[in-house]
Design a protein around this nucleic acid. Structure first.
Lengths: 205, 205, 205, 205
DNA sequence: GATGAATGAGTCTTCATTCAT
DNA sequence: TATGAATGAAGACTCATTCAT
């Protein structure tokens, strides 16, 4: 009995939290005006008090929304990379999948473009590990990992920003991937193979 | 009515405007907290009313400060490029000089890192013209100018952001330039020549 | 969600709104100085924020207060006119009751004197309909309804203004009614009858 | 020499004052927004400092403008009444001339409509004297002079207000005069004579 | 846990007034 | 006298946060 109540309560809590986060994402994606708590309360259709039961500041909600989105995204992309072992192929394919997700959802691109994955972020740490591995095998130029991260991340973020406001075609995104990989000094043959793999895997949902 | 009065007035106006802008730059550079008009009023040592005589919003002041800084910067860099005609050399040298300026003034780097020179900016238009010229001569890879701009600008902005918080050495900045130029598909020999020219010209003030 | 909570909330809202309006009326009545939101906040004993939850400008509050007062007034006067069918009698009696209300409350007179019931107001439209009816029966002179409204309304407003600053006796107000009705060309016999009816009905509360 | 300088100075002073007043009248006439000193400074093409050399507040300027306009108006109307001795004729003719001035200048009507010639004004005192004279001769009903003033002034002000926003024809204004005089109990024959005199005198400029 | 009315500190913005030139 | 830049007090308005129901 008590267990049932507890479980129901937890589920309701999680539901409300999810509702607030999902309603908030389009607002974050849109950009422009400053967002206030009232905005989130309105779109999520909850009261101010309820908002405070879950998040104490707009920033806290933003971080939760970011985690939420990145978790989903990373799971999806990981699934697409299954079986690929070559670092260059994995890298190029992952970038292309990220971009593809943005291509199919302009609002989501707006959301991504506004994230701060700068120096010191978790994203940078993971990126660095993968890069180092590839450099050991001589697959990337010998450049500082921070520069490598900056050039790739900078290009990706700006590409999301463009996709947020303008419909984009697939071969343009191929070109973005080629440019990023060229900056890292990767073999263009391998990049083309990766793009071919992407095309095959994209087809199968 | 009297020329003298008119002139004196104009000079006073220009002085006050300059005072507000110059006092504002360190605030913009610092980043973090949201800036309110009171902040600028305090550091410029003028009254609120005076602020409104010159700028109607913080955004308007920010744009004025941006113009102010870029005018100075562009003049300085242009002076350094005198006599260089090869597009790759000019490009690489210019990037290196921009970075050098940031290296020597961390606060200024912070200011630059926060500028929005995104899609459609004046900076992009100028960049595109130069790039096209170089592409005609086969000096750059055949990539879309918007991607070229995004990769270079993205890398530069993130480099400024890093320089704003961490002392940086020159050879790291050389590497940034190499990476940017590699992304554009420029010949590494020419890039090395450009970096050599930079070293020579930097010495002579 | 719960009916009880919803009802309680609505009641609280209505109470606060009423509190602000009723506290505001003496301020509007007083006239002279320009009224600022702080003034209403102080007399109603609510916070600035609360004021803005109900009214966005002083003008909006003023209109609400006007509606509030006129609703009460019209109900009271209607009650006094029950059973009177002759247009002249109804007209004269109504004017006299309006004036009587002012006579017994100088502050209220001040409030009324400052209302803008000019060209195009709801009051004018209703006045016009009644006047037309009387003109069909030959009870009023054949004058333009806008002029008729202006002369009656103008005299009434100025009478309120005088009553706001000086104690006034009943027979003076009888004279005001006689003058208004004379301007409309109504029979003085009927007007005297109407004033007699007023005297009888005033006695019985 | 000194005399000449003094005279020139006085003339310039008067000119500037006149310039400010005349530029201000259309602003006062327009109504609606709150007027600030900046508004007058702009239309008169003088500096803020100069404004303060002549008027200390907007209210002071408004009173000066009112005097200015009424002086002109009264002189003109007096001239039109020359030779008329009957109080009713003088009264009716004067009202008709005032209205005619408004009819020919909508902006001026707006200015007049906003004046406060309420209880206790100079206008009321003069009105009272003329009325008493007529009452002695049995030409007006025996009504309180304050009521008489209120009914006539109230109707006139509202008529100006209407003329300020809507083109008006002469016979409508005749009707206004008839209504005002009927309210005072004046003989309609005399009023028609007065309106006839007005028509004759209006023709001759 | 959910609600939303109330709060008041923080900012924005205007504008009368001063004063050095 | 004329000018107009500078001032800062006054008022408008927002919004994060609390709390009784």
């Amino acid at each position: 009995m008590s267990d049932h109540r507890t479980l129901t309560g937890q589920r309701r809590r999680a539901d409300t939290r999810k509702r607030i986060i999902e309603a908030a994402i389009p607002l974050f994606a849109q950009g422009g005006e400053v967002l206030v708590i009232e905005d989130f309360v309105r779109v999520a259709n909850v009261s101010r008090g309820t908002f405070y039961n879950y998040f104490r500041t707009v920033e806290e909600l933003h971080e939760a929304a970011e985690q939420w989105q990145l978790n989903i995204l990373n799971q999806q992309v990981e699934a697409k990379l299954v079986g690929l072992s070559d670092p260059v192929e994995r890298f190029a394919c992952a970038l292309r999948f990220y971009l593809e997700t943005g291509r199919q959802d302009m609002a989501w691109s707006g959301f991504m473009a506004r994230l701060e994955h700068g120096a010191g972020s978790a994203a940078e740490r993971r990126f660095t590990l993968d890069l180092r591995q590839g450099q050991k095998d001589g697959l990337f130029a010998k450049l500082s990992s921070s520069i490598a991260y900056d050039v790739v991340n900078g290009l990706m973020m700006r590409s999301f920003a463009r996709m947020a406001v303008k419909k984009t075609c697939g071969w343009h995104l191929d070109e973005v991937v080629r440019t990023a990989m060229r900056a890292l000094g990767a073999s263009s043959t391998k990049v083309e193979q990766a793009l071919e793999i992407f095309r095959q895997r994209k087809a199968v949902k």
